[in-house]
Simulated scan of single mutants.
Amino acid sequence: MSKIADNFNFSVFGAKHKEAILVPEMPIAVRNNCQSGKWTIGDEEYGSKCSITILKFSKFFGSLGQTQNTLWGQIWFIAESGDLPQGVVIVTYIKSRSLNDFNRLVASIQARGVEPATGIFVPEFIKHSGQKPDENGTLKPINYYSLKWTWKERTNWSVIEQAAAVLSSESNLSRMIDLEGTKSMVCLDNLSPHDIAYLITSHSPKNQTEELSLDSSRENALLPASEKVPAKVS
């Protein structure tokens, strides 16, 4: 089929080079489903096992799905094993236990003098039990999942070379913006601790407002997610 396409110089969507990573024009968002303990794209499940190379990490505050006004970690990554699409950049969001454990792991690796992005991250779904009020306010037992993160050194460095090539391209970086996923969020990466505290406090249940914004008269305005400077793999 490719020979025929070459003969007729036929191309609609284009194709990536064999030794390259594809950055889609529209982000592929994968959900780490806390109810089923599986990776999900749309309505399709992709199992619970994977290992990943992370290209970009950002911190956000806001709402996604049914979760309102909380801290999020946005992860752009490449799946290296498991059932998720491979050879393509994917984005996901983590919060609460999953985010706390991720931060713990990253800090522990950094403390060893190692850049965490040079290794392979392995997220594992862990089951928890708890209680949640129903529509009548009665507490009901529930089960849910969070991600437990581990990390290992890599033996094959070709993916890092490909990742570095992705991050060196302005065209690729411009595609690594998830407008849909972050439409009700604010990027925290370029904010001072004072502004972050103000933002979170102003959106606590006592001070909740309809829009995520700081007072327009304040000197340090919030930066939109599209202006966030991406981290580089070294």
Rank of each mutant, 00 (worst) to 15 (best):
Q35R: 00
K3G: 01
G14W: 07
G47D: 10
I126G: 00
P141T: 08
A221V: 10
S108F: 01
D178L: 03
T118Y: 05
K18R: 03
R218W: 12
F13Y: 14
R31W: 14
P224R: 10
T182H: 13
V159I: 10
Q74W: 07
S63T: 13
T92Y: 12
F102H: 10
I90W: 00
L22Q: 08
K3F: 09
G181D: 00
L191Y: 10
P116D: 07
L22N: 07
F102V: 09
N32V: 13
I142P: 00
I120L: 15
I21A: 00
G37K: 05
Q110F: 14
G37S: 07
L167R: 09
V88H: 09
R154Q: 15
L55F: 06
W76T: 03
S202F: 06
Q35S: 01
L105A: 04
S184N: 12
G113H: 02
F8V: 09
V159F: 07
A225D: 14
Q66V: 12
V114Q: 08
I52W: 01
L179M: 02
N100V: 06
F77P: 04
H17R: 05
S226K: 06
S63Y: 07
M1Y: 03
S171N: 08
P224H: 08
V114F: 05
D83W: 06
N69I: 11
Q74A: 14
I177D: 00
L199P: 09
G73C: 09
Q162H: 08
L223C: 06
A117Y: 14
V12W: 08
G14L: 11
T182A: 13
L167H: 02
F8M: 07
Q131T: 12
P116A: 08
D134R: 04
E115H: 10
Y46L: 02
L55Q: 01
K38V: 01
V88Q: 11
V91L: 03
S184F: 12
K56H: 08
R175P: 04
F8Q: 03
K56A: 03
L147D: 09
E210L: 11
F125Q: 05
P230N: 00
E180A: 05
